[in-house]
Computed example of a mutant assay.
Amino acid sequence: MKFYSVIIPVFNRPEEIKELLVSLTEQTYKHFEVLVIEDGSERKCEEICLSFNDQLNIQYFYKENTGQGFSRNYGFERAKGDYFIVFDSDCIIPPNYFQIVDTFLLHTPLDAFGGPDAALDSFTTIQKAISYSMTSFFTTGGIRGGKLQVGKFRPRSFNMGISKAVFENTKGYIITRMAEDLEFSIRIEQAGFKMGLIPDAKVYHKRRTSLKQFYKQLFFFGRGRINLFRFYKNELKPLHLFPALFSLAFIFWILSILILPLLFKIGAIVFGLYFTLIFIDSLIKTKEIKVAILSIATSFTQLFAYGMGFMKESTNYILRSNSGNS
């Protein structure tokens, strides 16, 4: 039996970690340990973690704030498993997750893997809409773990596993924020390790609970894409420009109300058709009309925020390059 180490970095989210730990107590495959890494939080989750001592093989660590990437490294260094699995603290894990992973690895050995995310029926309407927009082909191209996706699969750290050998070879994350998981996945791939998607190893990802929080998160993601560009110039693909083009097109469309009325009408038709497709797709997938309606707002927020973050960090990169500091 393989032994797994679950690494969970936490920052000021004690209310989330309890749901995650409860879901881990319900696993059908029990051969794993849990390491919770408190990343300098003011709102600690130590008492919650200690309350699971009789249900889980769990360890709690508190350290100074260094960001999620280096907090995962902290866990990797102390883990005893054959594989290290990283979850975000806002995830809930289906009872058969480890059984699915273990069975898959038995027949298809992988050095690193990831799985998709989904929404539970108990999630709020906005959480379901955010989950849709973060996994939809119409907004992300399916690059976040779905079976249908553009380009090669690379695990994301909300649901990611690596072998002990991968960590020993790569030494883990070398950046702690802003696309740190993609940089890590690329380096694993370049080291020659076998990486793949386990389609059925999904997690339920609660994500943000308001459009404001969601905007901040996606703005940060947009900046992260340019941060990744600093390390790997060839990783910036045409697909990644879409949110920035969307943001620019939307701004120009709004400005055209007064100066180019015909263009405004054309833009209204184009945007209307695009968001109608999103509404229909969301309705088919979620079967909830409220979620489908809100998916229009979350999809717009996702694209616009990512695009604005992308453009902000692009500007910073150009300014640094011109000053010789990049």
Rank of each mutant, 00 (worst) to 15 (best):
98 F>T: 03
89 S>D: 15
58 I>Y: 04
111 D>N: 15
85 I>V: 05
60 Y>S: 01
98 F>N: 03
90 D>H: 08
72 R>T: 12
110 L>K: 00
45 C>D: 00
69 G>W: 09
50 L>V: 01
86 V>S: 14
89 S>P: 03
105 L>S: 02
107 H>P: 00
59 Q>S: 15
89 S>Q: 13
60 Y>V: 03
59 Q>V: 10
101 V>R: 13
50 L>A: 03
109 P>W: 05
44 K>D: 05
97 Y>G: 00
99 Q>G: 11
90 D>W: 04
88 D>Q: 06
83 Y>G: 04
115 G>P: 10
76 F>E: 03
98 F>L: 12
35 L>V: 04
100 I>A: 07
69 G>R: 10
96 N>V: 11
73 N>G: 07
65 N>S: 14
54 D>F: 09
57 N>V: 11
40 G>M: 11
104 F>K: 01
72 R>L: 11
94 P>C: 12
95 P>H: 14
79 A>E: 08
66 T>I: 12
108 T>C: 08
65 N>K: 15
69 G>E: 08
36 V>L: 09
84 F>W: 07
78 R>K: 13
109 P>H: 10
46 E>C: 02
86 V>K: 10
80 K>D: 05
63 K>T: 04
51 S>E: 02
67 G>I: 11
39 D>R: 05
36 V>D: 03
51 S>P: 00
58 I>A: 04
97 Y>N: 05
63 K>V: 02
114 G>M: 12
77 E>R: 06
40 G>Y: 11
91 C>P: 03
105 L>G: 03
114 G>A: 13
34 V>F: 04
34 V>P: 01
55 Q>W: 06
103 T>Q: 11
42 E>Q: 14
112 A>I: 11
86 V>H: 10
85 I>E: 01
57 N>R: 13
57 N>I: 10
110 L>F: 07
79 A>C: 08
110 L>A: 05
100 I>V: 15
70 F>A: 10
63 K>N: 01
46 E>K: 06
39 D>T: 08
53 N>E: 12
65 N>L: 05
67 G>N: 10
41 S>E: 09
97 Y>F: 14
82 D>R: 04
42 E>V: 14
47 E>C: 04
114 G>T: 12
101 V>A: 14
101 V>I: 15
102 D>A: 15
50 L>Q: 07
33 E>W: 02
